[in-house]
Simulated scan of single mutants.
Amino acid sequence: MMELTQKQWVRHAVTHPVEGFEDMRWKKAGSLKIALIVIVLLFFGQIAYGRLYGFQFYISYDKTFNIVPYIVRSFVLFGAWVIGNWSVCTLLDGEGTLRNICVYSAYALIPYVVQLYLNVILSHFLIRDEYVFMQIIELIGVGWTAILLFSAIKSVHQYSFKKTVLAVVLTLAAMFIMLFLLVLFMSLIQQIFIFISTVYTELSYRAKV
């Protein structure tokens, strides 16, 4: 079987959606460092897409910059996907490790990340009548990533087509549950903080009186 560098494995996995991840699995290839770089690029790509998009295509009405939504759309969603898939596929006798799920899923996101940056750049050169070209690029990037992600899960766990579909559906359900619980937890923390702040303010006021 082929001997490739880590960078060459990235290109092989992205350009060969059917056998790319399968080859990676058998050669035990894949770099956690490169996977992290992809997620960081996704984070900055989301920011660029939301803040630097050409004004003729998108106008941001946000007066202040809030980094939290971009963290959620990149690091949090990706982490929820990896943990959710690992949890679900552990019950479904999947063979993938947490590390491999993370690496393969990050590699699968590369077309989506590329289209983010490409469309941001094109938004400053194209006119509104040429927006269809940007839509095509976005469609290709999202569709390509969806195919790669499905192939990655199928290969890393050695599932059949039907079982992979089931795993993806259950993973999305697990993500929804985790994010819902995270929102509840953050809301609880906020309420506790408000309560403590109120008590402190009241005690400080009484102490001065």
Rank of each mutant, 00 (worst) to 15 (best):
Q190C: 10
M175R: 03
G54T: 06
Y49F: 14
K27A: 15
Q135G: 12
N66Y: 12
W26F: 09
V10E: 00
Y49W: 15
G79N: 15
L109A: 13
G94L: 00
T145S: 14
I39Q: 14
G143W: 02
V103H: 00
L36G: 15
Q56W: 03
I37E: 10
N119L: 04
L32D: 02
G141M: 08
I59P: 04
L77S: 09
K154G: 02
L109H: 15
I140K: 15
I137T: 04
V114T: 13
S155Q: 04
I71Y: 02
I110V: 15
L77K: 02
D93C: 06
A207T: 03
E130Y: 04
S74H: 07
E130N: 02
I127T: 13
I83W: 01
M134D: 01
V38C: 02
Y53A: 12
Q8I: 05
Q190K: 11
Q6P: 01
I196Q: 11
Q56N: 13
I137S: 10
F185W: 01
Y104Q: 05
T145H: 06
D23W: 10
L139F: 14
Y107K: 13
T5Q: 09
A174K: 09
L170D: 07
F161N: 04
F161T: 03
A48Q: 01
Q46R: 11
S105E: 04
A35Y: 06
V142Q: 12
S105H: 04
N100A: 01
I59Q: 12
I37V: 15
V120T: 12
